[in-house]
Structures are given as C-alpha cells and as structure tokens.
Design a protein around this nucleic acid. Structure first.
Length: 733
DNA sequence: TACCTCCACGTTTTT
DNA sequence: CGTGGAGGTA
C-alpha cells in the first residue's frame, strides 16, 4: 500500500523520497519542494519500517527549519517526535555533550556562550594577559578562534606564520583554558568538542553509528568543514547520508561554508546519482528565466535549470532613480498600489544588500504612513535586560561562570567599585579559582560587612529561595530579588525593558509547557539534567525573534541573506548598483563575485508573481554622495524579460572597472545638457555657480523642468547637493 | 557613577 | 550620515 503522503509528488521528488538505503545528494532548486522531500522521506522510512524514529538523525541549520520539519513529520505520522534526533547542528551537539559530559570532559551544567558572551570573555582575558587591544583587536581574535575551530584545529595544531599569528595562537590556547575553567562552551566549541568526542571514543562512536542508519541533512551547501567531518564521524560504511542542498544558493562561504563539501560528498559517500529537483512551484516563468540566465554566468556550478508549468507571468519591472531618496519614493508608491490591488503588505518584501540601506526606506515608509517591519538587529535573548536576568540564573546554577558573575556583580549598582572587584579578580587569578569562590573567600576572611559579601549572600539567598520552584517562578523571583525590576522601574526608558523581563517569564512558561506536552513516554533517558540549564541552553542556541510584533500586517524589509528560504507575492530588490550589489569588497575576494551572483539568484527567486529591480544613480553613503552605475546583473538578465518603467539619461559620471564612482568633483561633466532641462535654460552641466550659503560649486546633474527643475551642484565646501532651481538663488560664477 | 564629547568606522551572520 | 566605544569630566 502506498502511504497517502506520497500523493502529489513529482517524479524526481518521489524518486528521492523512496530511494533505497544508500547515500544521496539531492540538488534542490529554489521553490522545488525541498523541505517536503526531506520530511516525506523521513515519514516514508518510518512508515515502511526501514527505520525507527529512534534510528535516524536529521540536521538543519536553523531552529526554524528544525521546528518546521518536526511539525510536518508529526502531521504525517502518529508518532511522538520528542526523543527523535532532529535539530540544528548546535542543538544536537549540545544534546550529545549533555549526555556524555564526563567523556567530553565538561561539567554537567556547562553553559553556552553566545557571540556577545564570547567577545566579553575575550576582552576580559586580554586585559588580564596585558594584551594590547589596539594591536590585537578582540573581534579579530574571536574570528581567528572560530575559524580555527571550524577547521577542526586546536591551538596546539595551528602553525603560526608570523609574530601576529603566533600571539593569536597563544591567545587561542589561553582562551580555551579559560573556557574550560569556567565551564563554558562557545558555538564552534559545541561542534568541535562533540566531533573530538566521537573521534576519540571508539565505543561511543560505534554506538551512534550503529544507531543512526539514516542521516538527513538540510541546506547541505551551508555546511563547513567541521560539520562535514562530524557527519563523516557519525557515518558507518552502511549509513545512508541523504543530503539536500542547492549550490546556487550557497551564500555563506564568507562564514566558512564550504562548497567543496558538495564535491567531496559524492566521492566520500560513493554517490552514484545526483537527483535534481528543478520543477519550481513558486514563481512565474519570467522570474525563473531571469534567475536561470543570471546564474549561468557562474562557472563553478553543479548545473541545474528551474522550470515551471505555470505561465510566463509579468516581466521584471526595472526602475532607475536619480537618488536613493527617489528610489524609496518609487517603492512607496508601488507598494501603495499593490495594496490597492489587494496584495497583503506582509506578502511584499523590500530586499537590500546591506542593513544600512534600510534607513532611507524606513524614512519614506514612515512618512507615507505605511506599516513595515525590519528584520535584523537585536533579538529577544540578546537584549541587555534579558541577558542580565539570565546571568543571575547562570550564576545560581554554575558558580564557575565568571562572565555571569561580572555581568551582574554590580548591576543594578550596589556600590561595588572597581577597587574591590580588582581585589577579587586578583585573588581569583593568583589562586586559580573562580570569581565566585574568591568572593566567598573574601567574605569569610572577616570582610563580612563588605558590599561583596552582600552580593554573595544575595545570590545564595536567591538559590535557596528558588529551590524546587517551577522555572517561571524561579525567573520571576530572580528578576524581583536581584533588584532588576526596581532598577528598570526607576529608569526613564525602562518600561520596554520591564516588559521584556515579563516576556522572559512567559518564554520560560512556554518552554516548560512545550517540554511537558511531549514528555518522554516511558523509560526514555532524560536528555537534560535540569530544566533551568535546558532553558539557558535554549536561550543561547535560539536567540529568538528579531522583532517582537510578529505577524502584523506590514511590509517586510530585510537583507537578501535574511530572505533566504522565504517567499513573497512581490519583491523589490533595491540598490542594484555596482559597488553595492555586487558589493565592492567582493571584487577583491576569491570567488567573491560568484557569491554575490548567488545572492542575487536567491533574491530573484523569492518572488512568486512580481519582481521589481531598482537602482539609484546617486546615493548617500558614509555621509558622502556616491555616484554609481547600474549593477552588472542588469546585463546578465536578458533584456526581453525586463520592462523598463522609466529611462534616465546615463549616469553623469563614469566608473572604472566595476568600482563605484569616485568623488563627484573629479567627474567629467557630459558635454550636453541634461535632457530634462529646457533648452532655453541658462544652466548647463559643468557650469560654475555660486550659492549664497554653500559658496562656489559646479553643476553636475539636473532633472525635471519648469517649477520642478532641480540641479545637482557639487560645492567645494559642502559637497554635492540637489537644489530646486526656483528657490536656490544660484548665480553664475 | 553618569553623562558627554570625541573619534573611528561603515557587507552579509542560520548557531 | 549615524552609531558605538572609549575616555574624560562633573
């Protein structure tokens, strides 16, 4: 009997889902039903008795994807999905390390550092080692360490090649030692530590190899070298590794994602056949044709062409704006008419290459009264007040955690100055103990009345009072007794923060409820030793939504990176200018341009029905007006797929070999006047003028006619400005 | 301790 | 242009 969930799959999807026990690479194009294939295969494997829910492992990159997968499996099969090894790389590694903390040489209650915590630890350590932060920027050290770990190298295995890298390697070693002392683990360490655990512990490795007959990987093109080796370590010769990915959507190479993994996989796992999912269920034909044509310009590809059985649909709409402000104005107008046509605002996205571009857009949207939502920025568990509350919790759970100690020892302020803190730090350093232990010793040695002693008693009282309480109540108590609540109540701008603290209690309640709902049936080992520790790990591994008011009916603003995996009725790709998109920095990087093109490919394939490509001839960037020419991507999309909504004179300046144009005053002024200016106009491009306020300058651009006529003048002192001719009071120089 | 001013910086960032 | 960090001052 054919399970009902196989109905409706196309030929390639069905082939992938029902592949016999063997390793496979599924090249799944954008919108080709990748997640459906992955989850249906899991359901099929279980339903046909080829594997038990216990015997497979499925791994994703984001919590969202993992959750989605579990939800879909649960919808297809009447099984309890808890206990199944479905999660992110980091989440699964966390699970592995909690289960085998002793073998991994970690305390049972080890804490997970997020990027913020890690940077704080690095700065702290640099100070204590008297490393000059000028010469050794903490961010660079952080990057170095993550980089090494993601290549699987411990400090002892890194070959320094100059003085600088030698110090970096020394620091790396000191950093790892400090983490070990504090019982904390950074993101990359989760991976590396569990990889080493599997490699070094033969019985353990064999145990898991025997258990997981099927390993399924989502977004395989985003795996880094360490993740690849981790997968290898878990795979026995007979293991089926089912990898789904799209090399054309690999946009995280800059973070260590290795496209070589796609090639190596075929060799190492003896993959005979690559299945391609090329039928797209998302977009109309013209959009796909454009995406296919664009990505053809990349040389390093496995090769794939999207097609749809639906119609060609609209052409891509191209708009050239004179300025970034005008570009934003155009987008506002179009969004309004889309809304009038009945398209939901939340089904429309404005995409950009870099976050800084959102400001002009936001300004225009705000002025027009259009509701919008910007993705990116601080997430819930990264907020200051939330981190503070979590640090109190961490300290009650784990005394070794110096980072947590330092974060809250004097917050809210309780009169612990730099002097007394230095004493504690010095004592801790000289005796090789934690700050907490040093503070306790300090308290015992006759300074019981000191402010440090008060703090120690506060934490101890907290621990005592919350023992045995349900998690939400623990957090409530901590927020109150720590003084955080009082502190934010007194603060002028504290209302939002108080609200977030309340939200933290809710988050804990939701977390507990979700766990209880899928309580292990019987005899299953409790994965996490402690609810609080599990919640803290959850907070570190899943930083939460980027913005609170989700689901509101609002226009969606985000970077192209953030848009990966999403789809919208209509999409604007803005700022399509040489230097911006493709970004100028990518031009000097190896394979940088190909990654930019993949990024553009991702952007194009987000749209279901309508796609706008916009660019601005001039744009304010870093406080300076820059003149740009249109992105090369315009030339890589066949002209007949695009509809130019307007046609501006070519930009008034030229660019060199793809670089964004240079300072305006060096620009060669075109000989002819701008087309928009009446031939009777006394003003010409290139003419020298003076302005009562800005002084001397040269006209470099013009547009509009009559009362609308504006000229762009590049002033010697004040830089480039657009001026309405009617009011500007310009005089010929 | 809190605020202010000055300076450097300015792609993308699932965990 | 706008921000975030550092360092100085009330």
């Amino acid at each position: 009997m054919t399970p009902s969930f196989l109905a409706g799959l196309n030929e390639q999807q069905l082939e992938a889902v029902t592949l016999p026990q063997q390793s496979a690479l599924i090249l799944a194009g954008a919108g080709s039903g990748k997640t459906r294939v992955l989850t249906t295969r899991i359901a099929w494997l279980i339903q046909t008795g080829q594997v038990s829910p216990h015997g497979l492992l499925a791994v994703t990159f984001t919590n969202k994807a993992a959750k989605e997968m579990l939800t879909r499996i649960a919808a297809m099969l009447p099984i309890n999905t808890r206990g199944m090894w479905v999660g992110t790389f980091h989440g699964l590694c966390n699970r592995l390390l909690r289960l085998h903390h002793r073998e991994a040489n970690l305390p049972q209650l080890f804490q997970i550092l997020d990027t913020q915590d890690q940077l704080a630890l690095i700065k702290r350590l640099m100070k204590s080692m008297n490393l000059d932060e000028e010469r050794y920027p903490p961010r660079q050290a952080q990057w170095f360490i993550a980089q090494q770990k993601e290549e699987g190298r411990r400090a002892s295995k890194v070959e320094p090649y100059d003085d600088f890298s030698e110090r970096m390697v020394e620091f790396y070693a000191a950093y790892d030692a400090q983490c070990q002392r504090e019982g904390v683990v950074d993101f990359a360490e989760l991976l590396l530590r569990s990889y080493e655990l599997l490699i070094r512990n033969d019985p353990l490795r064999e145990h898991y190899r025997a258990r997981f007959h099927h390993i399924l990987v989502d977004e395989f093109q985003d795996t880094n070298r360490l993740q690849y080796r981790w997968l290898q370590a878990l795979s026995a010769p007979g293991t089926s590794l089912f990898a789904v990915g799209d090399d054309d959507q690999s946009i995280y190479a800059f973070r260590g994602a290795s496209s070589a993994n796609m090639h190596d996989l075929q060799r190492d796992f003896h993959i005979e056949k690559v299945i391609k999912l090329e039928q797209n269920y998302r977009s109309h034909g013209h959009i796909l044709d454009a995406a296919n044509a664009l990505i053809e310009h990349n040389r390093k590809r496995l090769g794939k062409n999207l097609w749809t059985s639906e119609g060609k649909g609209e052409q891509l709409r191209v708009y050239e704006a004179a300025t970034d402000i005008e570009e934003a104005g155009f987008i506002v107008d179009e969004v309004k008419s889309l809304r009038a046509e009945g398209v939901a605002l939340s089904d429309v996205a404005v995409l950009y290459r870099s976050n800084a571009q959102s400001r002009v857009l936001e300004h225009a949207l705000f002025t027009a009264g259009l509701p919008y939502r910007v993705y990116g920025g601080l997430r819930f568990f990264e907020r200051q007040e939330v981190k503070h509350a979590l640090a109190y919790l961490r300290l009650t759970a784990s005394e070794e955690d110096d980072g947590a100690f330092l974060r809250v020892v004097n917050f809210p302020t309780r009169g612990i100055g730099a002097r007394s803190l230095e004493q504690v730090q010095e004592a801790a350093r000289s005796r090789g103990i934690s700050l907490w232990a040093a503070a306790c010793a300090n308290t015992l040695s006759g300074k019981a009345g000191s402010s440090i002693a008060t703090f120690v008693r506060l934490i101890e009282a907290m621990r005592e009072a919350t023992r045995g309480l349900p998690l939400p109540e623990v957090i409530e108590h901590v927020i109150e007794s720590s003084g955080l609540q009082q502190h934010y109540r007194n603060e002028k701008e504290g209302a939002d923060r108080l609200e977030n603290l309340g939200e933290l209690v809710n988050a804990a309640a939701a977390f507990v409820a979700e766990r209880d709902m899928q309580l292990p049936v019987e005899g299953q080992p409790a994965d996490e030793p402690d609810e609080l520790i599990a919640f803290l790990a959850h907070a570190a591994l899943e930083a939460g939504e980027h913005q609170a008011q989700a689901g509101a009916e609002a226009l969606q603003l985000m970077t192209v990176h953030a848009a990966k995996g999403l789809e919208f009725h209509s999409v604007f790709i803005s700022g399509l200018e040489e230097g911006l998109f493709p970004h100028e920095n990518s031009m000097t990087e190896a394979d940088g341009m190909e990654e930019e093109r993949r990024l553009m490919y991702v952007a194009l394939t987000r749209a279901r029905r309508r796609l706008y490509l916009t660019f601005a001839q001039s744009r304010m960037l870093h406080g300076q007006t820059r003149f740009n020419i249109g992105s090369r991507f315009f030339q890589e999309i066949p002209e007949n797929l695009m509809r130019r909504m307007n046609r501006l004179r070519p930009a008034r300046t030229t660019s060199y070999a793809g670089y964004a144009a240079f300072a305006p005053h060096t620009a060669a002024a075109p000989a002819a006047p701008a087309f928009a200016m009446a031939s009777s106009s006394p003003w010409r491009i290139g003419q020298s003028v003076t302005h009562p306020k800005f002084g001397a300058g040269v006209i470099v651009g013009a547009e509009g006619r009559g009362a609308e006529a504006r000229v762009q003048v590049n002033f010697r002192g004040a830089g480039a400005k657009w001026l309405m001719l009617e009011y500007a009071n310009l005089a010929p120089a």
